[in-house]
C-alpha cells in the first residue's frame, strides 16, 4: 500500500514534532545544564566525575533498578494470571468489561492519594498488620512501611493495570485453534500453556515489563512517600537537587545518568531476547 507523501509527512511529522518539543528540547536543556558548574557557571564534567567516583550514587542507582525489577516481577506474577483469566475464563462480555473498568479505575486517582492510602494500610496499626496479628501469623506488628518491600508493594499496585492491559490485548489475539490442536494431540493443559499460549504471549510480557520497569525507575511520588526518607532512589535525589539544594546542574547530571543507564539496561534486555528468539 502506498500513501500520499503529504500524508506520510503529516503522519510522521506530528509525532516527531511532539517528541521534539516535549522530550528532545527539554532533555537537551537538562543535558546541557549537567555540564555547568553551580559555583561559577563555567563548563565542566566534574558532576559526572562526582557521580562515577562516589559509591553513594552507584548505591542509589542500584536500589532504583532493584526496586523496579522487583516491581516488574511482582506485577508479572500477579498480572499475567489476571489477564489470562479475564481473556479465557470470563465468558460474559459484561463481566469482562466490568473487570477492565475495575482494573483501570485506580489510574484515575492521583498517585499521591494512593500512596497515602498505603500509609494507612501498611502501618503499624494498619489493616495488614491488624489481620496478621489477628490470624496469629505474627506476635506484634511487623515493619512493612518505610522498607523496600513496602515501596515494591505500593508501586506494584500502581503498575498492575499496565501489565494486565498489555498482556490481555496479546492473549485476545492468539488463535485458539492452536491451543485446541495441542489438546487434541494429547498435550496436558499445563504443557499446552507452556508450549503454546505462553510463548505466543511473550510480546505482551516483554512490552508490559518494559513499560512497568521504565515507569518504576522514574517514579517519584510513591517511593518518596512509602520510603519515609529511609531509602533513597534516584528520582528522590533528583528532586532533592532541584527543589531543596537548588543545585540544578547536579540534578541534571543525576537525571542524565538515570536515563542513560536505563536505556543501556533496556537495550541489553532486548538484545538478550532477540538472541534467544533467534537461537
Amino acid at each position: 500500500m502506498r500513501i500520499n507523501p503529504w500524508s506520510a509527512v503529516l503522519l510522521l511529522g506530528v509525532p516527531v514534532a511532539f517528541l521534539f518539543i516535549f522530550f528532545i528540547v527539554p532533555f537537551g536543556t537538562v543535558a546541557v545544564a549537567s555540564f555547568r558548574m553551580p559555583a561559577d557557571g563555567g563548563w565542566s564534567a566534574a558532576n559526572y566525575v562526582k557521580i562515577a567516583t562516589d559509591g553513594y550514587y552507584w548505591g542509589a542507582l542500584y536500589l532504583t533498578f532493584k526496586i523496579a525489577l522487583w516491581v516488574t516481577l511482582l506485577v508479572l506474577v500477579v498480572g499475567y494470571p489476571l489477564a489470562y483469566t479475564i481473556t479465557y475464563n470470563v465468558r460474559s462480555t459484561l463481566l469482562r468489561r466490568i473487570i477492565y473498568i475495575v482494573i483501570v479505575t485506580p489510574l484515575f486517582t492521583s498517585s499521591i492519594v494512593r500512596a497515602f492510602g498505603w500509609l494507612v494500610l501498611l502501618g503499624r496499626k494498619g489493616m495488614v498488620n491488624d489481620t496478621l496479628v489477628a490470624l496469629d501469623f505474627v506476635d506484634k506488628p511487623v515493619q512493612i512501611l518505610f522498607t523496600e518491600g513496602g515501596i515494591v508493594i505500593g508501586m506494584a499496585y500502581i503498575m498492575l493495570p499496565f501489565m494486565v492491559l498489555t498482556v490481555a490485548s496479546i492473549l485476545q489475539n492468539i488463535n485458539t485453534s492452536l491451543l485446541e490442536a495441542a489438546r487434541d494431540l494429547g498435550a496436558h493443559p499445563i504443557v499446552a500453556f507452556l508450549k503454546v499460549t505462553f510463548p505466543l504471549s511473550l510480546p505482551g510480557v516483554i512490552a508490559g515489563s518494559l513499560i512497568v520497569f521504565t515507569l518504576s525507575v522514574s517514579a517519584y511520588v510513591t517511593p518518596s512517600i512509602l520510603s519515609g526518607g529511609k531509602k533513597t532512589v534516584m528520582s528522590m535525589l533528583i528532586y532533592q537537587q532541584y527543589a531543596a539544594t537548588l543545585n540544578f546542574p547536579f540534578g541534571a547530571t543525576l537525571a542524565v545518568a538515570l536515563l542513560v543507564s536505563t536505556l543501556l539496561l533496556i537495550a541489553g534486555y532486548l538484545l538478550v531476547i532477540e538472541r534467544h528468539a533467534k537461537g
Binding site: F116, L119, V120, G123, R124, K125, G126, L145, F146, S224, I225, S227, G228, G229, K230
Partner: peptide, 20 residues
C-alpha cells in the same frame, strides 16, 4: 531511631494521624 523522615508537612501530619 526514627519511624520516617518527612519531605512534606502533610506527610508528617498523616503519620501522627495514623499513629505511626
Amino acid at each position: 531511631k526514627v519511624s520516617s523522615y518527612y519531605d512534606a508537612s502533610g506527610q508528617g501530619a498523616s503519620n501522627f494521624q495514623s499513629g505511626e
